[in-house]
Simulated scan of single mutants.
Amino acid sequence: MTVIVRDFRAPQDAAGAARVQRAALPFLLVSAESLAFDLAHAHPLARFRPLVAEEDGAIVGTAQVGLAHDSPEPGVGYANVFVHPEHRGRGAGSSIVRAAEEYLAAAGATSAYSWVLDEPAHRAFAERLGYRPSRPAYFLRLDLATAKLPRLRTPPEGVRIVPASAFANDPRPLFELDAETTADEPGDVDAEFTDYEHWLAETWGHPLFSRELTSVAVVDGRPVAFSAARTDGSARYGTSMTGTAGDFRGRGLAKLAKNDSLHRARAAGFTEAFTGNDAGNGPMLAINKWFGYEICATEVRHVRTLG
């Protein structure tokens, strides 16, 4: 059987690529619409180029490939590879990696980062291709249908909890809060959000982003903590980011926002909740444990020097 690696084409490849991603990493929320959207709204500086691997005309693998344009460190590339479990060991993964590395090197990347499941076969595959392990991170799951969520309590005086849709007329304050909290996230690749117009298109307008299930703590009209929610058209819900402005930390506002979002999600009929945390993010891991989340998988970020 011959494996062919080529560029992802939207919309015709979107359903097949989404199917592969869900099978390879079921803890990640994705849809055909979101994959097509990601390609259409990628930042020009990201040089984003998703790939697919075909076997006998069927998509059996895919990869998200590009430059970390929002990193203050130049030359950082990424290639996150997914191969359908039923088609592993036939060359799709290694073929995609080679194509991704060639593209990244030509685009000016000096390093390639890739998330790898912390399982012997996956780690051995990465190491054979010259990747060395870096930081681990966790996927966490909560059975939202049966979980005993903390009761909703009245916020402290001067604090309101509202959905993100309350900022529909002017989302910029949420952008500023997202930028501040993202800059503080632990990880081996830093990120800085500076492009508000791109954030509007790529984050605020993303088809997985739920403005009604995203909860925001507000003080004097300013958003100071939030829990950003995503849904993929199924009964699954995920939080992609939970954070608090630096001058409001230590007051339990992130917990308030996340609890509100979880209650909203369950009331809307969602039965599974997913999230992810860097292994070094002790405060957020503690919050998620308090809600009842359990680690369901571990990934280890790997890196290879290019050139």
Score class of each variant (00 low, 15 high):
Thr242Arg: 08
Leu117Lys: 14
Ala112Ile: 10
Lys258Pro: 12
Arg128Phe: 06
Ile96Pro: 07
Phe48Asn: 01
Ala15Arg: 15
Val52Lys: 13
Val219Ser: 07
Arg160Leu: 10
Pro85Tyr: 06
Thr305Lys: 15
Ala168Met: 07
Leu177Pro: 06
Glu299Gly: 01
Glu192Phe: 00
Glu185Lys: 04
Val162Ala: 09
Leu28Tyr: 15
Val224Asp: 05
Phe226Asp: 12
Ser210Ala: 07
Thr146Pro: 07
Phe125Thr: 08
Lys148Cys: 10
Gly238Glu: 15
Leu208Gly: 05
Ala36Glu: 15
Ala109Gly: 05
Ala267Phe: 10
Arg264Tyr: 05
Arg236Val: 14
Gly187Gln: 05
Arg88Cys: 11
Arg304Tyr: 11
Leu39Tyr: 01
Ala18Phe: 07
Glu180Cys: 03
Arg249Cys: 07
Gly243Thr: 08
Thr181Lys: 03
Ala105Val: 07
Ala225Lys: 02
Met241Val: 14
Ala79Cys: 04
Cys296Tyr: 05
Pro74Met: 11
Glu197Ala: 14
Leu306Asn: 07
Pro207Ile: 08
Asp170Ser: 09
Phe48Arg: 00
Pro11Trp: 03
Ala105Leu: 12
Leu35Glu: 13
Phe175Ile: 09
Arg236Trp: 09
Pro223Glu: 14
Leu51Gly: 01
Arg251Glu: 13
Gly66Leu: 02
Glu73Trp: 13
Gly93Tyr: 05
Thr146Cys: 04
Leu200Lys: 06
Leu28Gln: 15
Asn80Lys: 00
Asn288Leu: 00
Thr275His: 00
Ala121Asp: 15
Ala217Val: 03
Asp118Asn: 11
Ala32His: 10
His69Leu: 00
Pro74His: 10
Tyr113His: 13
Ser234Phe: 12
Ser71Glu: 10
Asn259Thr: 12
Pro120Leu: 00
Tyr293Asn: 01
Trp115Glu: 14
Pro85His: 02
Pro74Tyr: 12
Ala32Phe: 11
His84Ala: 13
Gly108Trp: 07
Glu157Lys: 09
Ala23Ile: 08
Val3Gln: 13
Glu294Ser: 13
Ala225Val: 08
Gly75Cys: 01
Asp232Ser: 01
Ala46Asp: 07
Thr271Asp: 12
Cys296Glu: 12
Ile287Cys: 00
Glu119Phe: 05
Asn169Arg: 15
Phe167Thr: 06
Ala245Leu: 12
Glu202Gly: 00
Val189Gln: 05
Glu197Phe: 03
His302Tyr: 15
Ala257Cys: 08
Glu127Lys: 02
Asp56Val: 10
Ala254Phe: 11
Asn288Lys: 01
Trp204Cys: 00
Thr146Trp: 11
Ile295Ser: 04
Pro223Tyr: 10
Thr146Asp: 13
Thr154Trp: 02
Ala112Glu: 09
Ala228Val: 12
Leu174Asn: 06
His302Pro: 12
Gly250Gln: 07
Ala273Asn: 02
Thr298Ile: 09
His69Thr: 00
Arg264Val: 09
Ser31Leu: 03
Ile96Phe: 04
Thr181Phe: 01
Tyr78Phe: 15
His43Pro: 09
Ser34Trp: 08
Leu152Pro: 11
Ala273Ile: 03
Pro50His: 00
Ser31Gly: 05
Thr110Ser: 10
Glu102Ala: 01
Pro85Lys: 03
